[in-house]
Amino acid sequence: MTKYWIGVASADHVELGVAGGFSQLCHGKEAPLKQMKPGDWLVYYSPKQTLGGDEKRQCFTAIGRVKGAEVYPFAMSETFVPYRKDIDFFPDAKAIPLHDISTLDAWQKYRSSLRYGHFEIDKAFFLVLAEKMGLPMKYES
C-alpha cells in the first residue's frame, strides 16, 4: 500500500537531493528513510533557504517517488556519514508557497508535525500538493 510523506529540509539541501536523486532526512538519520518503501511518495517542505540561515522560504519545494528499498550511508566528510535513500524526483515541480494551502483544513491537521522533520500524510492532501506542484497525472498511479 502506497504511503505519502512530507520531509522537512532547507531548500539548498533539497536542491542537492533532487540533483543527486536521493533523500536525506532529519540530519542524516536512518530511521525515517526506513519507513519509506518503494513506490511511496515524498514531498519536501523547506522552511528556510539555507540550513542555519535566516532567509525564510516556506514552500513545498520538491516531490518524488521512492525508487528502492535500500537505505545506505554516504560519507560527506570523515566525521559526517548520513543515510540516504534513492528518490525519483519530478524535475519540473513548481514550488508552492505555504500561504497557498495554509487555509486548507487538511494542512491544519499536519502543520504541527513539521517539527518532526518527517511524517506521513493522507492521499487526499498529497494529491492537492501534487496538483499544485504540476505533477502530471501519469505519476499519480
Rank of each mutant, 00 (worst) to 15 (best):
L129T: 09
R115H: 06
L104W: 10
G53V: 11
E15W: 00
V128G: 05
C59F: 03
R111G: 11
G39N: 04
Y44K: 08
M133L: 11
E55S: 11
R115F: 07
K67H: 04
G53C: 09
K138T: 03
D12Q: 09
A75W: 03
S10Q: 08
G21H: 12
P136M: 01
F90P: 06
Y72V: 12
A106P: 08
R65K: 15
A19P: 05
A93W: 13
L98K: 10
F89K: 06
A19N: 14
Y116Q: 07
G20H: 15
E30T: 13
T79C: 00
C59N: 07
I63T: 11
S46K: 11
L42T: 01
K37L: 01
Q58P: 07
V18S: 08
S23M: 13
E15H: 05
A69K: 11
G20Q: 15
A124Y: 05
A9F: 06
Q49W: 15
R57M: 10
S102F: 12
G52P: 06
K67D: 03
K138Q: 03
R115L: 13
K109M: 09
F89M: 06
G7R: 04
E15S: 04
K109L: 11
A95M: 13
Y139M: 14
G134V: 14
G117M: 02
V128S: 07
R111T: 12
Y45H: 04
A9V: 08
Y44D: 08
S102Y: 13
W41N: 02
D12K: 09
F126M: 05
D12I: 08
G20S: 15
M1H: 14
T61M: 14
A75D: 09
L127A: 07
A124T: 12
D92A: 12
V81F: 04
K29H: 05
L135N: 00
R57V: 03
